[in-house]
Each structure stands twice: as structure tokens, then as C-alpha cells.
């Protein structure tokens, strides 16, 4: 019998109110133990205030071959960036 514990991806929200961030992975038999292991493995230096774990197998990832179609079109939409707009210095900070 293979008893290898499944792999979990660990996401931690740090002290400063930012989003949960992927910090790494670990093995655990259940979600409950994955949370406990994540606390012991990934917050040894006071890194976190909230932990998410998700089975690695449950993550759907974009395919690298789709990188062009998925991400390049946004390159053309330069008007989404504030530097696209020229505002005279006299207007002051905006």
C-alpha cells in the first residue's frame, strides 16, 4: 500500500493585510493536518496571520503554450496604465 501523503499548496497572508501568497508546499494526510503542518513549516518566523491549503491536484493551471494568447493582448492596452496620460505639471499631483 502506498501511504505517501498527498501534496498540498500553502498560501499565507502576512501581517500587513496583503493577499494570501503562495509560499510552498508540503505533505499531509488531511486538510486539518495540512493546516497544522503549514503553521509549523511555513510560519516559524512569525510570517503569517492566516493560512490556506489546497490539494495540489485540485489546482488548474494555465498551459505555458497559451502564454501568448492569454497574456500578450494586454500589452497593447497601454491606456490602462497611468503613465499613458500626459497631465501638465501645473495641475499638481494626480
Amino acid at each position: 500500500m502506498s501511504s505517501e501523503w498527498p501534496l498540498w499548496e500553502v498560501f499565507i497572508r502576512g501581517q500587513h493585510g496583503l493577499n494570501h501568497r503562495h509560499v510552498g508546499s508540503l505533505h499531509a494526510p488531511s486538510a486539518e493536518m495540512a493546516i497544522q503542518n503549514a503553521r509549523d513549516v511555513y510560519t516559524r518566523r512569525n510570517e503569517g496571520v492566516s493560512i490556506w491549503v489546497v490539494r495540489s491536484n485540485d489546482i488548474t493551471a494555465s498551459a505555458p503554450s497559451d502564454k501568448g494568447p492569454l497574456f500578450e493582448p494586454s500589452n497593447a492596452k497601454v491606456y490602462r496604465h497611468p503613465t499613458f496620460f500626459d497631465i501638465p505639471d501645473d495641475v499638481g499631483h494626480m
Binding site: M1, S3, E4, W5, P29, S30, M33
Partner: peptide, 13 residues
């Protein structure tokens, strides 16, 4: 230990 905890998690699931 590894087998015991895995077996328990499977029972629970």
C-alpha cells in the same frame, strides 16, 4: 505512523 494517519484521513473522507 504515516500509514496510520493516512488510513484515518481516508476513513474520515
Amino acid at each position: 505512523v504515516r500509514e496510520g494517519l493516512m488510513a484515518h484521513a481516508e476513513k474520515r473522507a
